[in-house]
Structure formats: structure tokens, C-alpha cells
């Protein structure tokens, strides 16, 4: 079963694949893409910070911290 959702709504331990996504401003989008947040890449949701934001994910063998706003733009499919 394929499940479209936003990255922010994943639960700790969930694994997902990134779908094509867009955000403003463009510099934020490019920065994220340069860090590896490209369509087709597999990620694992690790945790939210104790106060709810930001979120920590595992991508390409490293741990990335993302702010809530960006995480709510990124569309993913659960795997």
C-alpha cells in the first residue's frame, strides 16, 4: 500500500521515500536539495525535539535536523 503524507506527520521509526516537493524561498529548497533531500531518496524519521520542533531524520547515513516549516512542505511515501 502506498501512503502519501508530509514528512512532519511521520512517527519515530517510520521509513519513507521523498516525493518531488517545492517550497519558498528558492534558496531554502536548493539548500535542502544540496543536503540530499531529493525525490526518491529514502529517509528514516528519528524524532521530534522535546518541545515539538525541529525534527531529526536519518538520510544517506547521517542525521539531519529540519525545521517544522520545511518538514511540513516535504511530501513522502511510507515504505
Amino acid at each position: 500500500m502506498l501512503l502519501f503524507m508530509i514528512l512532519l506527520s511521520l512517527k519515530p521509526g517510520n521509513r519513507a521515500r521523498i516525493e518531488p516537493w517545492k517550497t519558498v524561498p528558492e534558496s531554502s529548497l536548493l539548500r535542502c536539495q544540496e543536503m540530499g533531500l531529493l525525490p526518491g531518496v529514502e529517509i528514516e524519521f528519528i524524532r521530534r525535539a522535546p518541545l515539538g520542533s525541529p525534527v531529526e531524520i536519518r538520510i544517506n547515513d547521517f542525521h539531519l535536523v529540519l525545521q517544522e516549516e520545511i518538514a511540513s512542505y516535504i511530501e513522502v511515501t511510507l515504505i
Binding site: T23, R31, C32, P54, H63, L64, Q67, E69
Partner: peptide, 10 residues
């Protein structure tokens, strides 16, 4: 001003 996204590595 608008915030830019935070991205960081642990």
C-alpha cells in the same frame, strides 16, 4: 524579516 530554513547536522 522572513526566517530561512534551519538545516543542521547532528
Amino acid at each position: 524579516g522572513q526566517d530561512v530554513c534551519l538545516l543542521g547536522e547532528l
